[in-house]
Amino acid sequence: MATTQRERILPDRPTGVRPPGPQPALAPPRNPGLPLELDWIRDVRVNRSAVERRAAAIGTRRTVKRAWQAAWLLRAVTLIDLTTLSGDDTPGNVLRLCAKARRPVRDDLLDALGARDLGITTAAVCVYHAWVETAVRALQGSGLPVAAVSTGFPAGLSPFPQRVAEIHASVAAGAREIDVVITRAHVLRGEWEALYDEVRAFRDACGDAHLKVILGTGELGTLRNVARASLVAMMAGADFIKTSTGKESTNATLPVGLVMVRTIRAYFQRTGHAVGFKPAGGIRTAKQALEWLLLMKEELGERWCRPDLFRFGASSLLGDIERQLEHFVTGRYSAAHRHPMA
């Protein structure tokens, strides 16, 4: 597309300056949170139909092809919290997962893409508390953080002191990121102070570990609730807000994601604090990953497409991305068994 020179309608008159868009620093400071602002929460407006309309157009207004698609998919790999959250997890599969996190894409493919030097790894590995130490050991020297799901994941209804203690235990075991779940009842009943206090307590328990707050959006009933819960979580000091546990019947959807990232933008514009976003659950295909990246780039800009501000919670996504990358390299459709399993 030829974009060499600006169409000057009025050569003698400047056409205005770009408004200050959201552009966090290279290494944004953590979100310290705010005192609870109930007026702000009350003012939240979300029009579901309009949100769905925009969300549906994200993937039709934008697309990336060929080299651009390959590059975007590589970026997506670096955003993955490679996850296993199963009752039958053992050290065996957790170790496999960690190995895959270190080397998510075959070297020959990276070579072909000219991406060997980019140091492609996933963003983190995400496990239950029981396997935090295993994973920490396995990732030693890689710089990759281990994230632990916590606070009575997935329902979040165990006794409150126990939930706080669980955070302490995982941090002590070496987890650098803690994915907590909120009490959905607080949202459903409009108990914003209670929600705020809960998340604030989790944040305090995290210490230096980063706090990702799972809203369980599939159980919040309305998009307005999603927006209000997002806002309260950020006010209470969340480093990330995250859609789902992956255990609800409805996981991360683009309309939910759109509402959350718009809330992140509003929070950033008002406070200057950049909060990250993590869609999780149901993201299985490269195409979906691209849609989420398009959403982030369109609504928040490229800065929000980096691992300190954006993550995918996913387990099978990586496999599909690998196959797409191989297709780009070879021109032939690939097969799952051609890529090392996690």
Partner: peptide, 8 residues
């Protein structure tokens, strides 16, 4: 690819 990876 490496350049686009950086700029998206």
């Amino acid at each position: 690819v490496a350049e686009i990876f950086e700029t998206l």
